[in-house]
């Protein structure tokens, strides 16, 4: 089994990109997906509790 097959099986990217058009905005689905994931990561970083934070309360202020 080649490495190409193994990773390529997850998502098939071997085709022309899909694009979304809205007035002057022209964005590929791939780029829009990355943008949405960045916003999700940003919000998650703000709201999700950080491991071990309770134990670190006594550290430097």
């Amino acid at each position: 089994m080649s490495l190409d097959w193994g990773l390529g099986a997850l998502i098939n990217l071997n085709h022309p990109g899909h694009y979304l058009h809205w007035h002057v905005i022209d964005v590929s689905v791939a780029n829009l997906t990355v943008m949405v994931l960045m916003v999700v990561a940003f919000v998650a970083a703000l709201v999700l509790p950080f491991p071990g934070r309770k134990h670190r309360k006594g550290e430097e202020k």
Partner: peptide, 14 residues
């Protein structure tokens, strides 16, 4: 050796 307590947040990981 240590960082301030407020650094214990995911936003500081990036």
């Amino acid at each position: 050796d240590t960082q301030p307590a407020y650094v214990a947040s995911w936003i500081y990981v990036f």
